[in-house]
């Protein structure tokens, strides 16, 4: 579903991704683990299409189509979704307004009709209930005054509503206590299945206890240096990243 080939990226002149290759199969849950500064967050931003990232070489394909020239909105309409590590606050814009604007923009881009307001409300309420999101939160401006846990639950709510083909979870566990993490993970797990792939980016193995991956990739110095099954994550938990950072330096 997602194919990244030989990706080289600079940020402010500094090489961050250095010939990265990665394939995520349809329906697969892949984890990327790596030490701080290995380029994990850069990878998620580049796939989502953030400006200011200089792609020097390589390609990113989603369902066979090269997405590098597409705007972030076009990528989103093709089913790409990013759970932000630090979701942004948008003062004055009610969450409901935002959700509806996003959903309808995507439907429109795909040539689908707008969702009738009643149907939309129903869907939001159902998804919100599962994630323990109150009506009051939906009325408040996007992420403004939300706790870390509330922000992450709101990200998962958006994911449930927008039903992406391919979702990247960028350090979803950061800033979450164990209960909030469970709620979010349950929300994500409910969305696992055929036709949807996940890329779980994390520093710690802990998150993978709640969202068990099919494959685990280890990233260091801008590329994937090792791939394996779920046991690879456990091994990393025991030994740390020292092998990889030093090994890469050698």
């Amino acid at each position: 579903m997602l194919e990244i080939e030989n990706l080289h990226v600079r940020v402010a002149g500094k090489k961050i991704l250095d010939g990265l290759n990665l394939t995520v199969e349809d329906g697969q849950v892949a984890a990327i683990m790596g030490p701080n500064g290995s380029g994990k967050s850069t990878l998620s931003y580049v796939v989502a299409g953030r400006a200011d990232y200089e792609v020097e070489q390589g390609s990113i394909k989603l369902d066979g189509a090269d997405i590098l020239e597409m705007s972030p909105a076009e990528r989103a309409a093709r089913g790409l979704f990013l759970v932000f590590q630090y979701p942004l606050e948008i003062p004055g814009v009610a969450t409901m307004t935002f959700l509806k604007a996003a959903l309808n923009a995507q439907r429109k881009a795909r040539g689908e009709a707008e969702l009738p307001t009643l149907e939309f409300m129903k869907q939001v309420r159902a998804a919100a209930a599962k994630l323990n999101i109150s009506q009051d939160m939906l009325k408040r401006p996007v992420n403004v005054g939300f706790s870390g846990g509330e922000k992450k639950r709101m990200e998962v709510l958006q994911m449930a509503l927008l039903e992406p083909r391919f979702a990247i979870l960028d350090e979803m566990d950061s800033g979450l206590d164990i209960d909030a993490l469970k709620t979010c993970a349950e929300g994500v797990n409910a969305l696992r299945g055929e036709g949807r792939s996940l890329l779980v980016i994390t520093h710690y193995q802990r998150l993978l206890n709640f969202i068990p991956p099919d494959v685990v990739h280890v990233m260091s110095r801008g590329k994937i240096v090792r791939s394996g099954g779920p046991d690879l994550a456990l091994a990393l938990e025991a030994t740390g990243y020292a092998d990889y950072t030093e090994g890469a330096a050698a």
């Binding site: 909105a73 604007a101 996003a102």
Partner: peptide, 11 residues
Amino acid sequence: QLFYCMQRGLE
């Protein structure tokens, strides 16, 4: 902020 909105599908 702009990127966040665009990631959700808004031009």
